[in-house]
Design a protein around this nucleic acid. Structure first.
Lengths: 103, 103
DNA sequence: ATACTATATGAACATTTAATCATAAAAAGG
DNA sequence: CCTTTTTATGATTAAATGTTCATATAGTAT
């Protein structure tokens, strides 16, 4: 496979490699949300949330639209939920096995 | 969901967020491999490859066993291939859509 | 014991990422 | 026009990451 493809795939995973960004994607499972709803939900700095949203949008996981002064974000890549689910099951299984070894 | 779980999931994605590490996982699709095979395959510094392998092992994606002076790595989390495949299809679709918009 | 091979790790450095504060830009309301 | 609200962005700083070189460690062979 092409080096460029590996790089793009790595960028995609990098966008998901922060707990706040995973939380954002999960929150948007409920559908499109205004930044003015996302910020209070996360209880983090507005500027920080704005940058996390930009990171997810940059790789195409999210998209946004402006309505007046508000900006609405939604999941553009529905595939991401399958990926999050699989990663979660991996993480849980790995943790379970690690616990089993220590017992 | 628990904050700890989001953090563990983020760590998992972080392990996949480097082209060399993705290449390693794909290479190990062929089964267990000695570091002495992985390094020449990647054509990167031995010490660097060693650190990438350690990063993948740390989160449980790979495991290793020692045989004499050699160390063999293999994929411990077979789930990772489903995740890589899904991410690849997302990345391709996103690229296709981006190209379509520009045309 | 010495020398050689395979792998991991410490130290150093450059780059990237995350967080915060302050401010800019755009829209809306008075 | 001035003010307020919402979101994005520049600047700064701290921390994490990736790379390289040199070296340590462990196993094997002579």
């Amino acid at each position: 496979m092409d080096e460029k493809v590996y790089e793009a795939e790595a960028e995609y995973f990098k966008a998901l490699s922060h707990p706040t960004r995973i939380k954002i994607v999960q929150y948007l499972k409920g559908g499109e949300r205004c930044v003015c709803e996302i910020v209070p939900y996360l209880k983090e700095e507005q500027s920080n949330v704005s940058r996390h949203l930009a990171a997810l949008k940059r790789v195409g996981i999210l998209s946004s639209r402006k309505e007046g002064v508000s900006v609405y974000y939604k999941v553009q890549d529905e595939n991401v939920y399958k990926i999050l689910d699989l990663a979660l099951s991996s993480v849980k299984r790995i943790a379970r096995e690690k616990a089993a070894i220590l017992s």
